[in-house]
C-alpha cells in the first residue's frame, strides 16, 4: 500500500472538468439560441443534432461494441411509424407518441439481436440489413398508415402539439416556426442525453469491458467479462434511442413513407460516413463528422448522384489514408 501509492494512476473512469464546463456552456447556448436565431438556422441545427445523435449511437455499437450494423434504418423507421400510429390510431400528442417510437424500436431490436448475434463479421452486417428490409416490407402492408405510399400527420394533431403555443408566445413566432423550435429543443435534449449516457457508459466498469472486448475478446472473457450481456445491453439501448430519434425526425417532417423512413442511405450510409470521416470509436468523432457532412450536404446535395458518389469516395479515401478520421 505505502509503496504502491508513489505512482498516481489515471484511468478513463475519471472525468475531465475542462471538457465538462465547455460542454455545459455549449448546451446553455443551444438552449437560448431560438431567442435570436433565424428559422432556417434552427432547421439546420435540427438536422445536425439528429444526425449527430444517430452517428453517436452507431459509433457506440460499431465503434465501441464492434457490431457493424447496416440495419439501423429499421429503428428509425419503426420508431417513426410507431409515433404516427400513436398519433393517428390512439390520438396521442406527437411529443408523447415519440416515446412509443423508442419502445417499438427496442422491441424490434430483441428479435433482430437474437438472429444477428448468431452471425459474424460481414454476415452480421448483411443480417441487420435484411431484417430492416423485411420490416420495411411488412410496414408497407399497413394500410391504415398509408401502405406503400405513406401518410401525413393530421392537421388537428400538429396544430396543438404540447408546448407549441407557449413557444409561439414566448418568441413571438407563428405556429410552424414554433414547432421547429420545439423539435429543435427535443433534438438538443436527445443529442445531449445520448452523449452524456455514452460518456457515462464509457467511464463505467462496462466501458472498460467494452474496450477490453474490442481489443481482445478472448482475453476479455478470460478475465470474466460477459461479452454476450454487454452486446445485448449496448445494442438494445442504441436501438431504443435510434427509435426516439426516428420518431422525432418524422414528427418534424409530419409526413412519412416506408421508403423514406427505412432508407438505408439516409439513416445508415450517411451515418456511417459521418462516423468514419470524424473518427470511429471516439466520442468527438461524430461531432466533427456531422459538421463536415452538413457542409458537404449544404454545398453539393443539388448534384444528386454525383454528390453521393463523392461522399463514397471521400469515405474510402479516409478509410485508406486516415483511418482515425479527420479528428485524429
Amino acid at each position: 500500500m505505502k509503496h504502491a501509492m508513489q505512482v498516481t494512476v489515471t484511468t478513463r473512469t475519471r472525468a475531465s472538468t475542462v471538457a465538462g464546463s465547455v460542454a455545459l456552456g455549449l448546451i446553455g447556448l443551444g438552449l437560448i439560441l431560438p431567442a435570436f436565431a433565424s428559422r432556417s438556422l434552427i432547421q439546420d441545427l435540427f438536422f445536425i443534432l439528429t444526425m449527430l445523435t444517430l452517428a453517436q449511437l452507431w459509433n457506440l455499437i460499431a465503434g465501441y461494441g464492434g457490431m457493424v450494423s447496416v440495419g439501423q434504418q429499421a429503428f428509425v423507421g419503426i420508431g417513426a411509424y410507431a409515433m404516427f400510429a400513436g398519433v393517428i390510431l390512439l390520438g396521442w400528442d406527437p411529443v408523447f407518441a415519440i416515446l412509443l417510437g423508442g419502445i417499438a424500436a427496442f422491441l424490434l431490436a430483441i428479435p433482430m439481436a437474437f438472429f444477428a448475434f448468431r452471425l459474424q463479421g460481414a454476415y452480421f452486417a448483411i443480417g441487420t440489413w435484411v431484417i430492416a428490409e423485411v420490416t420495411r416490407l411488412i410496414i408497407a402492408q399497413w394500410k391504415t398508415l398509408g401502405g406503400g405510399t405513406g401518410t401525413s400527420l393530421p392537421r388537428e394533431a400538429t396544430a396543438d402539439i404540447i408546448g407549441v403555443a407557449t413557444i409561439a408566445n414566448l418568441f413571438d413566432l407563428r405556429d410552424a416556426a414554433a414547432r421547429d423550435v420545439l423539435a429543435y429543443w427535443l433534438a438538443l435534449a436527445l443529442a445531449v442525453g445520448t452523449m452524456a449516457a455514452i460518456y457515462a457508459l464509457l467511464r463505467s466498469r462496462n466501458g472498460l469491458a467494452l474496450a477490453a472486448l474490442r481489443d481482445n475478446d478472448n482475453a476479455a472473457r478470460s478475465v470474466g467479462v460477459d461479452a454476450g450481456r454487454l452486446k445485448w445491453l449496448v445494442f438494445l439501448a442504441a436501438a431504443a434511442m435510434t427509435g426516439l430519434v426516428g420518431a422525432l425526425i418524422y414528427m418534424q417532417t409530419a409526413r412519412i413513407s416506408p421508403d423514406a423512413a427505412f432508407s438505408v442511405t439516409s439513416w445508415t450510409a450517411y451515418v456511417i460516413f459521418i462516423v468514419v470521416i470524424g473518427g470511429i470509436g471516439r466520442l468527438e468523432g461524430p461531432i466533427l463528422g456531422v459538421l463536415v457532412f452538413w457542409g458537404l450536404q449544404t454545398a453539393f446535395s443539388d448534384y444528386g448522384s454525383w454528390y453521393l458518389l463523392a461522399l463514397g469516395l471521400i469515405a474510402i479515401a479516409v478509410m485508406l489514408f486516415a483511418r482515425g478520421g479527420f479528428g485524429a
Binding site: 494512476v9 489515471t10 484511468t11 478513463r12 472498460l208 474496450a211 477490453a212 474490442r214 481489443d215 481482445n216 478472448n218 482475453a219 476479455a220 478470460s222
Partner: peptide
C-alpha cells in the same frame, strides 16, 4: 501475451 492494448 494477450493484453488489452488500448487500455493502460
Amino acid at each position: 501475451p494477450q493484453p488489452f492494448e488500448g487500455l493502460t
